[in-house]
């Protein structure tokens, strides 16, 4: 049996909000360590890897491994009905045909209970070896989100160029072009405002702006985003959860 209680529904609300536009159907794998998901978008360009460790829950137990096949849009409809500050408990039997979601407000005078039908989802599972990266950028997630939104107004592609101590986001469109340069920066008082660049080799990669604008829906989850890049390889965008992560692997664009 699975029983996982979040102190606040807001964490799962944000996670589902970040995923629902990229993937429609997901298997949520529940083990004693927590809940994990791997899902690929229909175009097979973006892969989502979610890990909500048991430590992200106030109470968590899962005696036997359970797979919950969930339709993200339906899950989102139910999740939206709960208040962000409600306690949220996920409950499923050992061989479940439904996931129960219980929202309780903190004063315990209101309990809302929902049941979501499960689906049998046949999904490819991709093996992601330990990847080596040539460049790692830690930057404020809100800053990254603004750059992705701004650059998308110009072009469907966003070029990321990393040299020693700066990251250049470059966009070449039909009616004009634009770029934003971010430099390494340490804010000792507000560390979440800092930009850190760790570089082994210079990077010049191009990504689809549409996918980046899906990824930045994770912004409310974490004040910083970690971007890991390697020449001619998928990039990794990571948002840390209190205990766990939401990762996106994005395939680059190449010269034809």
């Amino acid at each position: 049996m699975l029983e996982g209680k979040f102190d606040e529904a807001s964490l799962l609300k944000k996670v589902i909000d970040a995923m629902k536009d990229s993937v429609k159907l997901c298997n949520f794998n529940c083990t004693e360590n927590g809940i994990s998901v791997q899902a690929i978008d229909d175009s097979r360009v973006l892969l989502i890897s979610l890990l909500i460790e048991a430590g992200s829950f106030e109470d968590y137990r899962c005696d036997r491994n359970i797979v919950l096949g969930l339709e993200m849009e339906s899950l989102n409809k139910i999740i939206k009905n709960g208040n962000a500050s409600d306690m949220l408990t996920l409950v499923a039997e050992d061989s479940p045909d439904a996931l129960n979601l219980i929202f309780e407000d903190k004063r315990r005078d209101r309990i809302a209970e929902y049941s979501l039908k499960l689906m049998d989802i046949d999904q490819d599972f991709l093996k992601i070896e330990d990847m080596k990266f040539d460049a790692v950028v830690n930057m404020p997630s809100a800053e990254f989100a603004k750059i992705c939104r701004d650059m998308k107004t110009l072009s469907e592609s966003l070029q990321i160029i990393i040299t020693k101590d700066s990251v250049k986001f470059n966009s070449e469109g039909d009616f004009g072009s634009g770029s934003v340069v971010i430099k390494s920066f340490t804010d000792l008082e507000k560390t979440e405002e800092s930009v850190r660049i760790t570089l082994e080799k210079p990077i010049n990669l191009t990504f689809g702006a549409k996918y980046l604008n899906d990824i930045i829906k994770s912004t409310p989850l974490a004040s910083q985003v970690t971007i890991k890049l390697c020449d001619k390889q998928p990039a990794l965008f990571e948002y840390q959860l209190p205990s766990g992560y939401l990762r996106f692997y994005l395939a680059p664009k190449f010269e034809d």
Binding site: I40, V45, F125, T206, Q233, A251, K253, F254, E255, D256
Partner: peptide
């Protein structure tokens, strides 16, 4: 002209 790569050319099914 840029072409979008697929993740399937980088990762194998397990």
């Amino acid at each position: 002209k840029l072409k979008q790569a697929s993740l399937m050319s980088f990762f194998s099914k397990s």
